[in-house]
Amino acid sequence: MKTTLWLFRLSLTVHAVCVLAQPILAGLYLDGSYDALGVHSLNGSILPATGMVVGAAGLAFWIAGGAGWPLLAYGVLWLAEGFQIGMGYARVLAVHLPLGVTIVALTIWLTVWSWLPRASRRRRRRRESPRSALDRVEQS
């Protein structure tokens, strides 16, 4: 599980750097550097690809015994990023800006969580029902 956790951490960190670049690039554009809008658009188009790598690493982490909720949370975040791209190209800034803030906050939160010691804990196995425990004893 350690290797898959490291892959998940590293892919999330790379993705978070790309996500954090977005508001910086938008700010540069608003400050008069009009070329920054093209870079903002290009970086936004790269995000789904880095997101797929995060999703694959998250799936491997879950299969290896890691928590499942980060994979689910990231799946929702990845869908939100796709919607965000559409809102940006459609110039619906009333949705694009607040959704962007939400995406940045959730990405940072998930990335920070992945580097905490609790991320390396194996998920708990389901408790065995008393009946199945009794069956196992009777088979012995």
Rank of each mutant, 00 (worst) to 15 (best):
Thr3Ile: 07
Thr4Asn: 03
Leu12Phe: 07
Leu12His: 01
Leu12Cys: 12
Leu12Arg: 00
Val17Asn: 10
Leu20Met: 12
Leu20Thr: 07
Asp31Leu: 14
Gly32Pro: 12
Gly32Ala: 06
Ser33Gln: 08
Ser33Gly: 03
Tyr34Gly: 00
Asp35Val: 07
Ala36Gln: 09
Val39Asn: 00
Val39Asp: 02
Ser45His: 15
Ala49Phe: 13
Gly55Lys: 01
Ala57Pro: 03
Ala57Tyr: 02
Phe61Lys: 02
Phe61Asn: 02
Gly65Ala: 14
Gly66Leu: 10
Gly66Pro: 09
Gly68Asp: 06
Trp69Glu: 04
Pro70Glu: 08
Leu71His: 02
Leu72Met: 15
Gly75Arg: 07
Leu77Ser: 01
Leu77Gly: 01
Gln84Tyr: 02
Ile85Pro: 07
Gly86Phe: 08
Met87Asn: 12
Met87Trp: 11
Gly88Trp: 15
Arg91Pro: 00
Val95Cys: 00
Leu97Val: 15
Gly100Thr: 03
Gly100Met: 05
Gly100Ala: 03
Ile103Ser: 06
Leu106Arg: 06
Trp109Thr: 05
Trp109Glu: 12
Leu110Ile: 12
Leu110Lys: 03
Thr111Glu: 01
Val112Ser: 14
Val112Ala: 13
Val112Gly: 10
Ser114Pro: 00
Trp115Met: 06
Ala119Asp: 06
Ser120Asp: 09
Arg121Asn: 10
Arg121Val: 05
Arg123Val: 07
Arg123Thr: 09
Arg124Gly: 07
Arg124Cys: 03
Arg124Ala: 09
Ser132Thr: 08
Arg136Asp: 14
Arg136Pro: 06
